Amino acid sequence: MALMPKRVKHRKSQRGRIKGNATRGNKVVFGDFGLQCLQGGWIRAQTIEAGRIAGNQYVRGEGRLYIRVFPDKPVSSKPLETRMGKGKGEPEYWVAVVKPGTILYELSGVSEQQAKVCFARLAAKMPVPVRMVRRRPA
């Protein structure tokens, strides 16, 4: 089941624009390795779910996969071949807005080689370029 908020203040939102780099959510906190996006963009709820399934299939019982983004922005669209006017379209799907540097997923309890293979599978599903990062010693 794709992620979506239980309730929102406004049913429809404007598109907005993505400026600057991520200042929050840009460090590996829960796991040992993270998947960091290198470009801003929208990641659909279905894409996040596909990454979760692919990652959990790989780690099985050994490690733990953490999801660090949540789709809280509704994207609306009008039906095809509809005339102009008659208002804004209905919400179609939900997206997570990510800035460059945002950590999308984290892994713990696996070796670095296993994390590379797992994140390579996740990277193939992502609509933005990503890289693997390691946790910094505190």
Rank of each mutant, 00 (worst) to 15 (best):
residue 84 M to Q: 15
residue 127 P to F: 03
residue 88 K to W: 11
residue 90 E to F: 04
residue 118 C to R: 00
residue 132 M to P: 00
residue 125 K to G: 00
residue 80 L to M: 13
residue 128 V to P: 07
residue 126 M to E: 01
residue 74 P to D: 02
residue 117 V to F: 05
residue 97 V to T: 09
residue 116 K to A: 14
residue 125 K to Q: 02
residue 93 Y to V: 13
residue 104 L to E: 06
residue 106 E to V: 05
residue 94 W to T: 06
residue 110 V to M: 04
residue 84 M to K: 15
residue 88 K to H: 10
residue 96 A to V: 12
residue 124 A to L: 08
residue 79 P to R: 08
residue 124 A to Y: 10
residue 83 R to K: 15
residue 132 M to F: 01
residue 99 K to W: 09
residue 108 S to L: 01
residue 78 K to F: 10
residue 91 P to C: 09
residue 113 Q to S: 14
residue 75 V to F: 04
residue 128 V to W: 09
residue 123 A to C: 12
residue 88 K to R: 14
residue 74 P to S: 07
residue 111 S to E: 08
residue 90 E to V: 03
residue 93 Y to F: 15
residue 116 K to F: 12
residue 93 Y to S: 12
residue 110 V to T: 06
residue 81 E to Q: 11
residue 131 R to L: 08
residue 80 L to I: 15
residue 95 V to H: 02
residue 74 P to Y: 01
residue 100 P to Q: 07
residue 117 V to M: 04
residue 133 V to T: 10
residue 89 G to D: 03
residue 86 K to N: 07
residue 78 K to P: 07
residue 80 L to G: 13
residue 123 A to L: 10
residue 131 R to P: 10
residue 130 V to I: 05
residue 116 K to W: 09
residue 75 V to S: 04
residue 117 V to R: 06
residue 91 P to A: 09
residue 84 M to D: 14
residue 103 I to Q: 00
residue 89 G to P: 04
residue 106 E to Y: 02
residue 89 G to L: 03
residue 116 K to V: 14
residue 100 P to H: 07
residue 101 G to D: 02
residue 78 K to W: 10
residue 112 E to F: 03
residue 79 P to G: 10
residue 81 E to N: 12
residue 82 T to M: 15
residue 123 A to N: 14
residue 91 P to L: 09
residue 125 K to Y: 01
residue 95 V to R: 00
residue 98 V to C: 03
residue 110 V to Q: 03
residue 103 I to A: 00
residue 92 E to W: 11
residue 113 Q to Y: 11
residue 117 V to L: 08
residue 90 E to R: 08
residue 76 S to H: 01
residue 77 S to R: 14
residue 124 A to S: 08
residue 93 Y to H: 15
residue 133 V to D: 07
residue 101 G to L: 01
residue 108 S to M: 02
residue 95 V to Y: 02
residue 78 K to I: 12
residue 73 K to N: 07
residue 76 S to Q: 01
residue 113 Q to G: 10
residue 125 K to I: 11
residue 108 S to K: 05
residue 105 Y to R: 13
residue 119 F to M: 09
residue 105 Y to M: 13
residue 95 V to F: 02
residue 107 L to I: 08
